[in-house]
């Protein structure tokens, strides 16, 4: 198997364990496991659902909003779909699924990215922060969330989590020094309601307020 070559791995005990258990289940499958991928898949389609799932899923460890997860995911699951459909963290939005709107913006190891254009399995060992994990906890909101409310930096609210995650990153990156700079570095977050004027005002207030973001 390719993933048993030196330098290539899905280096998880659980996965190996799952595979071994699974291989024991059926001699037919033992044979299949060593045939090339496409054949396996074609055959798997005719097999019991659980067996197919064992083939398809790989283990994944990551932290989201400080909570550690050990998961089994299909490799084709994006980080966005993992958050929304499996972890039920629906604050991160799907607005295009192609990296063209910014609604899915989250922080991975502190950097803002589009969660729709990365696979969940590519985040192995990483720390993900979503809108649900931005505030310090309790009833308290993050200063950027407070500023968005105060300046009415949204209307329908759908792009808002992405705007806020991006806005926080924009300040952390040092790209919030002027209105023009904020607009350029926030251009990856589309607001179809057109609340841009108010979003920029919110970011400027947080930036000028000197609070730690």
């Amino acid at each position: 198997m390719a993933d048993e070559q030196p330098g290539l791995s899905l280096d998880h005990d659980e996965h190996s364990q799952a595979r071994r258990t699974f291989l024991k289940q059926s001699s037919l499958l033992t044979a299949l496991a060593f045939t090339p991928g496409p054949v396996v898949r074609a055959a798997a389609a005719e097999l019991d659902e659980k067996v197919a799932a064992a083939f398809e899923k790989v283990p994944l460890k990551l932290a989201v909003n400080g909570k550690r997860y050990k998961l089994q995911v299909e490799p084709r699951t994006t980080l966005l779909d993992l958050l929304r459909e499996q972890l039920h963290l629906t604050g991160t939005k799907k607005g295009c699924d192609y990296g063209q709107c910014g609604a899915c913006t989250v922080h991975v190891d502190g950097k803002r990215i589009n969660s729709c254009l990365t696979l969940a399995v590519m985040q192995e060992g990483k720390e993900v922060t979503t809108i649900e994990g931005l505030a310090p906890g309790g009833d308290k909101l993050h200063p950027m969330q407070e500023a968005f409310i105060k300046h009415d930096g949204f209307q329908c609210g759908y792009c808002t989590p992405g705007q806020i995650m991006s806005a926080v990153a924009c300040i952390r990156e040092g790209h919030a020094d002027s209105e023009g700079e904020i607009r350029e570095y926030m251009s990856g977050n589309i607001c179809r309601c057109g609340a841009y004027t108010n979003i920029v005002a919110a970011i400027q207030e947080v930036k000028n307020g000197g609070q730690r973001v």
């Binding site: 963290l89 629906t90 604050g91 991160t92 939005k93 979503t130 809108i131 649900e132 505030a135 909101l141 969330q145 968005f148 409310i149 105060k150 009415d152 949204f154 609210g157 759908y158 808002t160 989590p161 806020i164």
Partner: peptide, 16 residues
Amino acid sequence: MNRVDGRQKVTGAAKY
């Protein structure tokens, strides 16, 4: 007056 659903929208709690 601020939006009544502002908190829901800025925290990601608003469900679509």
